[in-house]
Amino acid sequence: MNLKAERGAATRDKVLTIATRLFAERGYDDTSIETVLQESGLSRGALYHHYAGKEALFEAVLEATEAAIGAELVRAVRGSRDAEEALLTGVLAWVRLARDPVIKRIVLTDAPAVLGWERWRAMEERYSFGMLKAALDATGAVPAEFLDLHAHMLLAAVNESVLMVARGGDQATAEAAVREFVHRLLRPR
């Protein structure tokens, strides 16, 4: 990689790190480009060379966060004995990951509002929601024509558990409820 490309990558990484922290701490609405510029020491032109604006910067932060979540979920399910165990392990890993203030604020709270549901869901398809759907499909527990619907319902139930914990609920209780929900989904009585 040439020196100019290396500097560009370093600048993008620096801005993403700073913007991730600011968006997580303050939220999208209360994070200004001016604050990102002040903290990064970049000129407005340098920032806009890499990102078209605040929304594009947020989208890049979200993309990086989703990629990190995806990598962590893959690590969590590595070594699972079968598809059902992988699904449950991945879902419970997501419940634990979603406690992270960065993930909670950026992925679960601000992303749907900033990008709109359609764009947010498209990104989720490429990352954690896509992985959830593939894992659910691998179990063979859901007919193909209902896979998308069941995956959405599972994600909604899991995310609601995460949000309950965020509002002061008990982590162990939420994990137990998610475990029970996944078992009932895979093995209805």
Rank of each mutant, 00 (worst) to 15 (best):
residue 23 F to E: 00
residue 169 G to P: 09
residue 36 V to K: 12
residue 1 M to R: 10
residue 129 F to D: 02
residue 158 V to I: 10
residue 89 T to E: 03
residue 145 E to Q: 06
residue 166 A to Q: 11
residue 13 D to K: 15
residue 113 A to C: 02
residue 161 S to M: 12
residue 189 R to W: 13
residue 172 A to K: 14
residue 132 L to C: 10
residue 21 R to G: 01
residue 127 Y to P: 01
residue 185 L to T: 14
residue 182 V to F: 07
residue 90 G to A: 09
residue 147 L to R: 07
residue 147 L to A: 01
residue 5 A to I: 08
residue 28 Y to C: 00
residue 54 K to C: 01
residue 129 F to Q: 03
residue 151 A to I: 01
residue 80 S to L: 03
residue 149 L to R: 10
residue 26 R to Y: 03
residue 175 E to T: 06
residue 163 L to M: 11
residue 148 D to W: 12
residue 67 A to M: 11
residue 90 G to E: 07
residue 34 E to R: 14
residue 17 T to V: 08
residue 153 M to N: 12
residue 35 T to W: 15
residue 130 G to S: 07
residue 80 S to W: 09
residue 91 V to P: 00
residue 182 V to R: 13
residue 157 A to R: 09
residue 150 H to N: 09
residue 76 A to C: 09
residue 88 L to A: 11
residue 99 R to P: 00
residue 169 G to M: 08
residue 139 T to R: 11
residue 42 L to Q: 12
residue 56 A to E: 12
residue 91 V to W: 11
residue 80 S to E: 05
residue 175 E to H: 04
residue 11 T to I: 10
residue 56 A to Y: 08
residue 99 R to K: 07
residue 109 T to S: 06
residue 81 R to H: 10
residue 125 E to R: 13
residue 54 K to D: 02
residue 153 M to T: 11
residue 31 T to Y: 09
residue 16 L to N: 01
residue 122 A to N: 07
residue 104 K to E: 11
residue 110 D to G: 07
residue 116 G to S: 05
residue 144 A to D: 14
residue 27 G to Y: 08
residue 166 A to W: 15
residue 155 L to Q: 06
residue 155 L to E: 12
residue 73 L to G: 05
residue 6 E to N: 11
residue 59 E to F: 04
residue 17 T to H: 15
residue 89 T to C: 08
residue 185 L to N: 06
residue 79 G to T: 01
residue 131 M to I: 15
residue 97 L to T: 01
residue 108 L to Y: 12
residue 136 L to F: 12
residue 69 I to Q: 10
residue 71 A to R: 13
residue 75 R to S: 15
residue 172 A to R: 15
residue 132 L to T: 13
residue 4 K to Q: 13
residue 98 A to H: 14
residue 161 S to K: 11
residue 11 T to Q: 11
residue 141 A to H: 06
residue 100 D to G: 00
residue 82 D to W: 08
residue 41 G to E: 04
residue 156 A to D: 10
residue 149 L to M: 12
residue 165 V to R: 05
residue 174 A to C: 04
residue 163 L to Y: 04
residue 92 L to P: 05
residue 107 V to L: 09
residue 123 M to V: 03
residue 91 V to H: 03
residue 16 L to G: 00
residue 20 T to P: 01
residue 18 I to L: 14
residue 50 H to T: 04
